[in-house]
Design a protein around this nucleic acid. Structure first.
Length: 612
RNA sequence: GCCACCGUAGCUCAGCCGGUGGAGCGCCACCUUGGUAAGGUGGAGGUCCCGGGUUCGAUUCCCGGCGGUGGCUCCA
């Protein structure tokens, strides 16, 4: 329903002629009402099921402007998806009846061309429009209610026994306790800005962008580099795993039949793009493009498991404003998204387990070990009854108790799912890696393969994000670094992700020349090196380098030149003298097997602007 | 969407119980040529978020907006 409210000194209207055959019969053609809230109403499809909600909204407005008299004025011109005239009449009559209990209500005739004169009061609330929608929301909350009724929570221990979440002994697993609280009851976090927000700003990684919508961040050169390296890393990982990288559009037609029904399964709000007369939504994952591609492909059982992968940049979810938080929860984010077609459940489970292991490995390379995150495994009761041993094996692989959520019935499109959840210092949990076994969408999208007998079949689809959103990885790394700093450790990023890996500090200008030589030596090996050539004291330059979390700081002066050695300050590990080759092999060791990218900033610090 | 807090220099913030504003950092200049977490001096830089009200006078008080953040609801 769409409503335009005008708080009026008076409205006067006159029914002129019938606009349709089944216009209602009327006695009085002309009416005038003083001091009233005029509600111009377009009844839309499905409104008859949300009359209650509509009355609440209208009452809300009437109360705000202090109106005791309401004029309901059928007005078809606010919407392009009008309800049938029968439904519209029904809704209007009901509104009149319900509102009539509290207010003096008048209704202008339905189905007539009318002339009217209105005098709007002109105060701030005197003009107001509302779109009242309930259809999707109602369905969703029903589903949610049902989910809550039939959801069971457990902790599974290493022997595969299920414990009630209330009775489990969490003394060795404080973070699991926090995670369980967060999942089941929600937490009251302290009123604080999350530590990673200050870090992302002070390290010049990323920042809020006031010129965009909330939750759309800007990334400074260092942040862009870290992000790009994470993306490179995940991309390499899934390609090694056997995925085929593709690229798909970021916006889709609202009215595409498969997408439409899938959208209804996803309650999150979308960004809508209006282009001419057409309406599109921005993708919230890479599912659509990949599914549509798979739909058109000719697939043999020999091709399975078949894996498509895309770095969804961006995925858009129009989260509620108050829910946005730094890099933890965004409206535009970067998500590696892989979909695997599996012939049958055994193959799907085999893939699931491999991807589970891959996720563990991936997080480890970002410095997030088992114990830095909590594991949740969710499934339907049927799946569990048939595959108890499989679940136990998953728990053994992480070697720690796991939160279990079980549903009597399947509410979502999957029968099995896991996530790795990072628990931060404010006791908030955020999902990182996840894999799901989808039993619904192959059919919805018409994705099929031909089996050994040449018969066309629906495969299972695994959704996998091996790392979770790239921004969330940065969030988790920064939050973890902050926790370590609070324990007295020096916070840092893994060396392969450090924007500057080696900072060279010449003791005075005379040594800039040989600093450049040292820089070039390491740079030719693919490392990111810069030189602090600013006119500042050595200790000041050290301080700045430490504040940037630079893993290796090299001071070059007379001593070094004479002895042909480097004095290297290793982050968190004191100062050591070494040959340049030794530093090189340290760097190689720290970054082995990881992607490399060039320094995204001028190597001379005097050339750099401050972004903050 | 609801609630709370905040909005003053590029950044972090102080201040004004009403008389058109400060600090530190950063930036610029000069001095200093340095040895492992801040060398010194000086300078430039402001629509005190916007609109209205009260007042002789509002950055300050009041009302209303807008923006930001945090919490709640929500989170496939």
């Amino acid at each position: 329903m769409r409503v335009l409210f005008i708080h009026a000194d008076f409205i006067e209207y006159e029914a002129k002629s019938k606009a349709m055959k089944d216009a209602e019969e009327i006695k009085e053609k002309k009416e005038r009402y003083e001091e009233c809230l005029v509600s111009f109403i377009s009844v839309e499809e499905g409104d008859s099921s949300i009359v209650e909600k509509i009355t609440e909204e209208i009452e809300d407005v009437a109360e705000k402007v202090g109106a005791g008299r309401i004029v309901l004025y059928p007005y078809a011109h606010l919407s392009n998806k009008l309800a049938s005239s029968e439904e519209a009449m029904k809704v209007l009559n009901e509104l009149e009846k319900i509102l009539g209990k509290k207010y003096e209500v008048h209704r202008a005739p339905f189905g007539w061309y009318k002339s009217f004169i209105i005098s709007c009061k002109g105060h701030p609330l005197s003009e107001l429009s509302k779109e009242i929608r309930g259809e999707v929301k109602e369905e969703e909350s029903e589903a949610l209610k049902a989910e809550k009724r039939t959801t069971y929570w457990y902790i599974m221990d290493l022997d595969g026994n299920l414990h009630s979440v209330d009775d489990f002994d969490y003394s060795s697993y404080p973070n699991l306790k926090k995670f369980v609280n967060y999942e089941i009851s929600g937490t009251r976090a302290a009123k604080e800005i999350p530590p990673h927000v200050k870090l992302m700003q002070s390290l010049e990684l990323s920042d809020y962008e006031p010129g965009s919508d909330s939750g759309n961040m800007r990334y400074y050169p260092k942040g862009k580099l870290v992000k790009a390296l994470i993306e490179d890393y995940v991309e390499n990982k899934v390609i090694d795993y056997g995925a085929m990288q593709v690229e798909t559009p970021i916006m889709y037609d609202f009215n595409h039949p498969s997408l439409k029904s899938y959208l209804n399964r996803f309650p999150a709000r979308q960004y809508v793009v209006l282009s001419g007369k057409d309406k599109y939504f921005l993708r919230f994952a890479a599912c659509f493009g990949q599914f549509l591609m798979m739909h058109d492909a000719t697939i043999s059982y020999r091709n399975l498991p078949l894996r498509l992968y895309e770095m969804a940049k961006y995925a858009f979810r129009r989260e509620q404003k108050g829910e946005l938080s730094g890099l933890r929860r965004l409206r535009a984010f970067t998500m590696p998204d892989m979909h695997t077609l599996a012939a049958d459940m055994p193959q799907a489970m085999k893939e699931f387990k491999k991807q589970y292991q891959m996720a563990i490995d991936v997080l480890k390379d970002f410095g997030l070990e088992l114990g830095d995150y909590e594991v949740a495994i969710r499934f339907t009761r049927d799946f569990y009854e048939e595959n108890k041993e499989f679940i136990k094996e998953l728990v053994k692989l992480v070697n720690r108790p796991v939160l279990i959520q079980m549903w009597d019935e399947r509410f979502f499109y999957f029968v099995l799912k896991f996530e790795f959840n990072f628990v931060d210092s404010l006791d908030k949990a955020a999902a990182l890696s996840t894999v799901q076994i989808d039993v619904e969408n192959a059919e919805r999208y018409g994705i099929t393969y031909y089996d050994e007998k040449g018969e066309e079949k629906y495969p299972y689809i695994l959704h996998c994000s091996p790392s979770g959103a790239v921004e969330r990885i940065i969030y988790a790394m920064l939050e973890k670094a902050d926790m370590e700093a609070k324990k007295g450790k020096k916070p840092m990023l893994p060396v392969w992700l450090s924007p500057t890996q080696v900072r060279i500090i010449p003791v005075k200008d005379d040594f800039i020349g040989c600093s450049i030589q040292e820089m070039d030596f390491l740079r030719n090996e693919g490392f990111r090196v810069d030189i602090d050539d600013r006119d500042l004291s050595v200790s000041r330059k050290i301080r700045d380098a430490e504040k940037e979390w630079i893993p290796y700081i090299v001071v070059i002066g007379e001593k070094e030149k004479e002895k042909n050695m480097l004095t290297v300050r290793i982050r968190g590990d004191g100062v050591r003298e070494m040959k340049r080759e030794e530093l090189l092999s340290l760097l190689k060791k720290e970054t082995e097997g990881k992607p490399k990218r060039k320094l995204p900033l001028p190597p001379m610090l005097s050339q750099r602007p401050k972004f903050r």
